[in-house]
Design a protein around this nucleic acid. Structure first.
Lengths: 66, 66
DNA sequence: ACTTTATGTAAAATATACTTTACATAATGG
DNA sequence: CCATTATGTAAAGTATATTTTACATAAAGT
């Protein structure tokens, strides 16, 4: 799984902590998600996509292997 | 989280087991997901949405409270 | 009636998401 | 310089997704 969280966070000019607060998770959740260390729940990806005004598919991309 | 898995599974005329095989999870994962007992990972929802030819947003909807 | 197929459900085990706390670092502003 | 802000990282703990096995049931076909 690849993701474009960092890009859309930059577009919206949010820090990891601000984003975390907006979707009610810890900053580490954002940080580790952003660096691809784990795959978030569908609830989280829906919330982030909604906040950024994009689709889940725009924000997260499957890679061969997952 | 609400979902329309059962509907799209019906549209594609797949049993729970067939769907499970296609996205490499157990039948119980499909069954419990379908009945809303837990929220799947983004990888799973992306795979299902892709298989059904719909968006993750079409397949899963946030509810107030999650 | 009997067998098969699809589904619902449930309990225990395992994997993984997510939190909390903490420390390190680079960048910035006083 | 010193304090603050934003980020990276890591370890331990908790919550939850997913698997495996199993049993029950209803529907459909023979």
């Amino acid at each position: 799984m690849k993701n474009k969280i960092k890009i859309h966070r930059a577009i919206h000019n949010l820090t990891q902590e601000e984003l975390a607060n907006k979707i009610c998770v810890s900053r580490q959740t954002i940080n580790t998600m952003e660096s691809g260390k784990y795959i978030p729940s569908t609830a989280l990806s829906l919330k982030m996509a909604k906040l950024f005004g994009v689709s889940v598919e725009e924000l997260f991309q499957l890679e061969r292997g997952d």
